[in-house]
């Protein structure tokens, strides 16, 4: 995190690390990174400000401040995590804090696709399993090893079949989750589309 941060590149096949549990439904991106931190032209300094207001309110007792969670890399959340604004600053801030993967009951859609686009795999598990992990994790260190090939998450005592969209899983395994180059491979098809779309014939030259 912080100064030593390097963004993931290439194939992502395995993630292992300590879990950090954050309990609550509908945690929105305004909470993950409050709007005042969006006043920036790059993402570099966001790691320290993740959950800033929630952390201030809890005065050292927020999961992201607890000693036991230092150095965690797998975030465990409940349902509809990341709802609200489309700000990619939210997963960028989490990533810069040290999060490499997220497991939750469900995710908001734009947040999910932002995570995939920057190399944070998001997995879902049923409510009950999430609860189990969060209980296990309560004030204790809980290590998990996630294998993208078979979508299995393993700890010392527990084993989970994690769900992830097939398209996302394939992208991480092949290393093609950085979409720009894949999209540009179809350049001639894009040009054809540009020439064919009915409305571009009557609206192409506004300015």
């Amino acid at each position: 995190m912080k100064s030593g941060f390097t963004a993931p590149i290439g194939k992502i096949t395995q993630i292992q690390g300590k879990c950090i549990s954050l309990i609550g439904d509908d945690i929105d991106t305004d909470r993950i990174i409050p709007a005042r931190f969006l006043k920036c032209v790059n993402f570099d300094s966001l790691g320290n400000s993740v959950f800033e207001d929630d952390r201030k309110t809890l005065n050292g007792k927020h999961p992201f401040d607890l000693e036991v969670n230092k150095g965690s890399s797998i975030l465990i959340v409940n349902s509809n995590f990341g709802c609200g604004s489309s700000r990619e600053h939210a997963p960028q801030a989490l990533m810069r804090w040290g999060i490499k993967a997220i497991i939750g009951e469900s995710f908001a859609e734009i947040f999910y696709s932002n995570c995939i686009a920057i190399g944070i795999p998001c997995f879902t598990l049923p409510k009950k399993s999430i609860k189990d992990i969060q209980q296990y994790n309560n004030n204790k260190t809980f290590f998990l090893e996630i294998n993208l090939k078979n979508s299995i998450g393993k700890s010392k005592d527990l084993i989970f079949n994690l769900n992830i969209q097939q398209s996302s899983r394939k992208m991480f395994l092949s290393g093609e989750w950085d979409a720009t180059s894949t999209l540009l491979e179809n350049e001639h098809l894009i040009d054809n589309k540009f020439n064919d779309l009915p409305y571009l014939k009557f609206t192409s030259n506004y300015f």
Binding site: I110, S113, A117, A179, T180, I190
Partner: peptide
């Protein structure tokens, strides 16, 4: 709505996945 990485994709290719 899209995220910043997809904004990049649209600028570069006028498409998204």
């Amino acid at each position: 709505g899209i995220g910043t990485s997809q904004v990049r994709d649209v600028l570069a290719s006028q498409t998204i996945a």
